[in-house]
């Protein structure tokens, strides 16, 4: 099953209490942050802490990422060494402006993989655009490396770069979100939306999640475990969608049994995008607990 990324829980990298508990919540992904949530004087402490935690804690059942510092400083390079060497996580870049940033990061990772005898290409990456330039370069960024698994948008810095402010309906994010999403689709990777900081505003949060789901995003950044359930609920497919998806999968099996090369459902031909979409619907349904795993495999 393809890795679901409906929820990406941010965990400050210098907080031992939060790091050790990050795995108990049912977020699809956990991201330890060495960048914005860590003060300048504690960057080394956070690096050691996340490195030791990754080497010791049980990380099964989720995808783990680490957001490193910008690579134009020795901080970022040291972060990469400490984290890539653990062989366990996806590297999330901070503010990505251009494809150059991706390539530079890739070069460093390649070097580290060689030095530490890690299977070349096994370390994946995730980009994040947080500026006008980044958004405009989204497609180049998203297609810059086969290591990329996704691209995210960071609203706070982006909106500041645009010289405006965040609003409830997010109209100022419309273009940025769409660009990131289109870039993700063109590159065949996931699109992850920005954080929603007002943890107590459940209604506002749900509205935003509905919006980005409708736009086509694969998931949302989460800053508090209390936000997880709402996202998973909203991303749960409807029964109608599930039935449709099962019908597609059934049609494929039927075609395979008959040895037919052409797959048809209700008189219409089914092509690859439809199949992939059906599979994703089923994956989401199983993850939400609405569909049992065996039914899906039968």
């Amino acid at each position: 099953m393809k890795q679901l990324r409906r929820t990406m829980l941010y965990v400050p990298g210098n907080n031992p209490g939060m790091i050790k508990d990050a795995g108990i919540y049912n977020a699809d992904c956990v991201m330890f942050d060495l960048e914005d949530s860590v003060s300048v004087v504690e960057k080394d402490a956070a690096r050691f802490l996340v490195n030791e935690a990754l080497r010791t804690l049980d990380l099964t059942g989720k995808e783990y990422l680490v957001r490193v510092n910008a690579l134009d400083s020795p901080l970022g390079i040291a972060d990469l060494e400490a984290i890539v060497s653990t062989r366990k996580v996806v590297i999330r870049l901070p503010k990505t402006e251009s494809a150059q940033d991706i390539l530079q990061c890739e070069r460093e990772i390649e070097r580290i993989e060689r030095e530490y005898n890690i299977e070349p290409g096994s370390t994946r990456m995730m980009a994040a655009v947080e500026s006008a330039a980044g958004v405009l370069n989204a497609k180049e960024i998203a297609t810059a490396s086969p290591r990329l698994i996704g691209i995210a948008i960071g609203a706070e810095d982006y909106v500041t770069d645009l010289k405006t402010t965040r609003s409830a309906n997010g109209v100022e994010l419309m273009f940025g979100r769409s660009m990131v999403l289109l870039a993700a689709r063109a590159a065949g990777i996931d699109a992850i939306d920005t954080v929603y900081s007002d943890v107590n505003n459940e209604e506002g949060f749900r509205e935003e999640v509905q919006l980005i789901k409708q736009l086509g995003f694969d998931g949302k950044s989460i800053i508090n475990p209390r936000q997880i359930n709402a996202v998973h609920e909203i991303f749960t497919p409807s029964l109608k969608e599930i039935d449709k998806a099962l019908a597609v999968i059934e049609a494929i099996k039927e075609a395979n049994r008959k040895g037919s090369g052409v797959i048809a459902l209700n008189g219409k031909m089914i092509d690859k995008p439809v199949v992939m979409r059906a599979q994703r619907t089923i994956d989401l349904a199983v993850a939400s607990g609405v569909l049992e795993k065996e039914r899906e495999n039968a």
Binding site: Y25, N224, R226
Partner: peptide
């Protein structure tokens, strides 16, 4: 409580 672990 608002402690996410206890709520869970």
């Amino acid at each position: 409580t608002s402690n996410p672990k206890e709520l869970m």
